[in-house]
């Protein structure tokens, strides 16, 4: 893929992640590839991105497998409600996942709505770059 195309794609992804970060309570938004690498991230605090990326893919993989065990088919989103906030993970094209971290001020409904709106856009960008790589 040409360098300008990569730069444009990165710009588009960064803009989308920044928009997600502007939602109330959201403290981090990241794209994680199939090997558990954080390829793009916007964050308000220090994160061990290697560890986060792997954990996100494992979390999503385990939820997907659990859903299959109870015949609930594909997994559209995984939400982990934690003492100090929440995490949301959703699948994208080409094995990527979107991971959001939010604090206690977050409103789950509005984040979920925005994520659902954003997923097809991100998937289209990632899908295009995956097919460009061949």
């Amino acid at each position: 893929m040409a360098a300008t195309t990569v730069a444009k794609r990165t710009q588009s992804i960064d803009r989308i992640l920044s928009e997600l970060m502007s939602l109330r309570g959201v403290t981090s938004a990241a794209l994680v590839d199939a090997d558990g690498f954080v390829t793009h991230i916007r964050k308000d605090f220090e994160i061990d991105s290697d560890a986060l990326g792997a954990a996100v893919q494992i979390m999503f993989g385990a939820a997907t497998r659990s859903a299959q065990h109870v015949q609930q088919e594909s997994t559209n989103m995984v939400v982990s409600e934690n003492r100090e906030g929440l995490m949301m993970v959703a699948p994208l094209a080409a094995g990527f996942t979107l991971a959001l971290v939010a604090d206690k001020n977050a409103m789950l409904g509005s984040i979920r709505f925005e994520v659902k709106e954003t997923l097809p856009v991100l998937s289209r960008i990632l899908g295009e770059s995956a097919s460009a790589r061949g």
């Binding site: 199939a34 090997d35 558990g36 290697d50 893919q57 999503f60 993989g61 385990a62 997907t64």
Partner: peptide, 17 residues
């Protein structure tokens, strides 16, 4: 793979790392 599906790719890579 049986337990965590596609997540195993990340787990195995990170274990090797």
């Amino acid at each position: 793979e049986d337990m965590i599906g596609d997540g195993s790719r990340a787990l195995v890579y990170q274990a090797g790392q």
